[in-house]
């Protein structure tokens, strides 16, 4: 059997895709947490983690090891089954979303023909996990966080889908490889700047991050929906959160910033440069802006973002029909 046949056989494909996704997932979880703490440190004029490895690069690995050696506590008031099930549901969509991400022209687990729709429908499952965690905890803070998280996630889903619809209208495809190949001459962000801004704002809200982090507002709700979670169960939520930041940025790169396209470097390098630039931006926003009130958050979505996204869609289609 020659090499091409080995690479073609289904078992090799499966093993390679699992290994690839797990490597990207692990490295991102370690790197993104380190980046967050480092950026936070430097924005606040301190150094951040410095002890483990070069400038604290291995801090995430050290924290992971520490958390594995911690007892997982199930408080006595909780709904035990749901409490144990919630981390599964919160984590489950993150790995599934990796399936359609085009890392380069050849590196993509599966190029589903409804890739875009698949990505955004799978991402909604995490909300169920979050609500389940908050409800099962039998803790007032957790419940408040969970209720807020539901309200926020469903509200910001509308502008996010309307903004990606503007992209679909231009490219006429839900297949991510076709959306990237459409951008061989220009990036979609140049023709759809409003959709891009709406997408990034709603994505930050979907991720429950500052300035939209009322579901886990530390100063009023302790830790929001995961107050009662300890040890590795907490770490699962944490990893899911940081993987979601990466995935949302990867999707923005694919839809608006030309995907893996770019000069000089190989495609994969360009993909990660663009994605991590967006990850850095999302972290930067967190440490630069104060938190919104729940009512400000809801009215911002319904009174501003949704109408803007709708108008953008209608104006785009109007000009496409005129010219």
């Amino acid at each position: 059997m020659d090499l091409a046949m080995i690479a073609d056989s289904i078992i090799v494909k499966v093993i390679l895709s699992i290994a690839g996704v797990m490597i990207v997932f692990t490295i991102n979880a370690l790197f993104a947490t380190w980046l967050e703490r480092k950026v936070a440190g430097h924005i606040q004029l301190r150094l951040g983690p410095m002890e483990v490895g070069f400038h604290g690069v291995l801090q995430g690995a050290a924290d992971g090891l520490k958390l594995i050696a911690k007892e997982i506590i199930t408080p006595k008031g909780v709904d035990k089954k749901l409490f144990a099930l919630a981390p599964y549901l919160a984590f489950f969509p993150t790995l599934l979303m990796f399936v359609v991400i085009p890392f380069s022209d050849k590196l993509q687990v599966r190029d589903l023909n409804i890739g875009l729709l698949y990505f955004f429908s799978i991402s909604c499952i995490a909300t169920i996990g979050i609500f389940m965690a908050g409800w099962a905890s039998n803790n007032k803070y957790s419940l408040m966080g969970a209720v807020r998280s539901i309200a926020q996630s469903i509200a910001y889903e509308i502008p996010i889908i309307l903004s990606i619809l503007s992209v679909v209208i231009i490219t006429q495809s839900l297949k991510l490889s076709e959306i990237v190949s459409y951008q061989s001459k220009f990036w979609i962000v140049l023709v759809q700047p409003v959709a891009f801004v709406v997408y990034v704002i709603s994505a930050i809200a979907e991720l429950n991050r500052t300035p939209f982090d009322i579901p886990e507002a530390e100063s009023e709700l302790v830790a929001g929906f995961h107050t009662e979670y300890s040890g590795m169960r907490f770490a699962v939520f944490f990893m899911a959160e940081y993987t979601n930041i990466f995935l949302v940025s990867a999707m923005a790169t694919t839809l608006f910033l030309g995907g893996w396209r770019g000069p000089f470097f190989p495609p994969v390098v360009w993909f990660f440069i663009k994605t991590y630039a967006l990850v850095f931006f999302i972290i930067w926003v967190r440490w630069a802006f104060p938190r919104l009130r729940p009512d400000q958050l809801m009215s911002f979505c319904w009174k501003f973002l949704t109408p803007v996204a709708l108008l953008n869609l209608l104006i785009t289609t109007f000009f496409m029909k005129i010219f």
């Binding site: 499966v14 699992i18 594995i68 599964y88 984590f91 489950f92 790995l95 599934l96 399936v99 699962v236």
Partner: peptide, 14 residues
């Protein structure tokens, strides 16, 4: 396959 993988991963780490 990936949904099974995620269940296995969370089971192992917990």
């Amino acid at each position: 396959l990936f949904s099974i993988l995620s269940v296995i991963f969370v089971s192992i780490v917990t």
